[in-house]
Write a protein that binds this DNA or RNA. Structure first.
Lengths: 151, 151
DNA sequence: ATGTATGCAAAACATTTGCACCTGG
DNA sequence: CCAGGTGCAAATGTTTTGCATACAT
């Protein structure tokens, strides 16, 4: 099992996707890039944009994210809680381990699980097209925070 | 890896959960029971109820499903598409393999994957509380349907 | 210039809630 | 009878859309 990191996305990635290079799109890419360790909701992104002084509408955030998703630049995940979260897609498949306390997200790839999933699809007669795996838990930071040093 | 089936739920399961045995609740249990092979949305359930001639409101469907979830009678899943789907919970943990063509859902448990997930949580320092795994693919039926017999 | 993007406001959905009425134990 | 359950309609929160204006190429 190996953890993963990522590489920055920029203007040329937008052009390659057939999208004009506009300020909202660049800003959104930038914020996603600065928050690789957590997954942001449209609302999160919107607030972050306002904080940087940009006057960008929530509708634009949604539109841009949808376009980015179609272009394969970001992945959309439907978490618990009725709203979607987004992360940059650097091309490589990976799964997620999510902290239920602080929302931190780590990514991993495990060949044994990958292999086993293929086997299961075959055994059940399915032709596998995709899969998604989430492990939920309490991350090291939150775990320590909950252990009082005197007890 | 083993596939799973289920056993019916009834009035006593409602009582055990501290819920009055009412017509809407029984009907909803019944419909869930008759559709174990697919996961139903609140809207699906609502329509199914109307078809059986029952005059049950959508709000009640949501309320009942939420209560059932709290009571551990059903599980709620957040699929792609912005809405939730529900399935009866027969107590045993299991994962899902979903047909992207027809919505058919099969359930399975794989000890190797279960084990590996625990290992990954441990390696990354997380205390695992839960996990969810979906394999998406094309089920045998849909697969055959797409293969013309003359070609 | 000119086809796209954007911002705003309104619309569309999925889900929840308030409240008067109904019903199971 | 009476607490809990239900239906309806209105409220909520998220995401989408229509349209006039602004911008990238």
């Amino acid at each position: 099992m190996k953890l993963r990191t990522g590489a920055p996305l920029e203007s040329k990635d937008l052009r390659r996707a057939g999208l004009k290079v506009t300020l909202p799109r660049l800003k959104i890419l930038e914020i996603l890039d600065n928050n690789r360790q957590r997954h942001l909701s449209a609302e999160d992104l919107y607030k972050a944009l306002l904080e940087t002084g940009e006057d960008i509408g929530l509708a634009t955030v949604y539109r841009v994210l949808t376009q980015f998703e179609a272009a394969g630049l970001v992945n959309r995940h439907h978490f618990e809680g009725g709203h979607s979260v987004f992360e940059l897609d650097d091309g490589a498949h990976h799964d997620h381990i999510v902290c239920v306390k602080c929302g931190r997200v780590d990514e991993f790839v495990d060949e044994i699980i990958e292999k086993r999933q293929k086997d299961i699809a075959q055994e059940t007669g399915y032709e596998m097209t995709d899969h998604s795996l989430y492990i939920y838990g309490i991350c090291p930071n939150c775990h320590n925070r909950n252990r009082p040093r005197s007890a």
